[in-house]
Amino acid sequence: MAFKDRVVPTIRIGDALLVPIQIDLDDKTVERLQTQLLEEIQEHRVRAVILDVRMVEVIDSYISYTLSETAAMAHLMGCRTVICGIQPPVALTLAQMGIELQGFLVARDLEHAMGLVY
């Protein structure tokens, strides 16, 4: 995948793909992130994708919809998805809206996430 098409840089650790999201997500970005991740899963044949959302300040219904959709697609490609580093205010907002991040394993931090992957 061309470098300029990437929304976020990714890191490969073993057969997992680490995706630290360091930008605030808006509708366009999260759609492009979906495309990027699916291409990288196919290209590198990773077993798991770990999304680190420590820097993300708002996750609304559309962003969570698109993320869950990505998780489902990844699942169909034989890849697990883990989300980690959800900030307390974001967690409270998602919980109050009744949004479940379907398809994701939830981890506290990277160490926990790596434990869930294997």
Partner: peptide, 12 residues
Amino acid sequence: IETFSAVKLLGA
């Protein structure tokens, strides 16, 4: 109940 699901979203 919301508090419980928020705690779960932190991975605990």
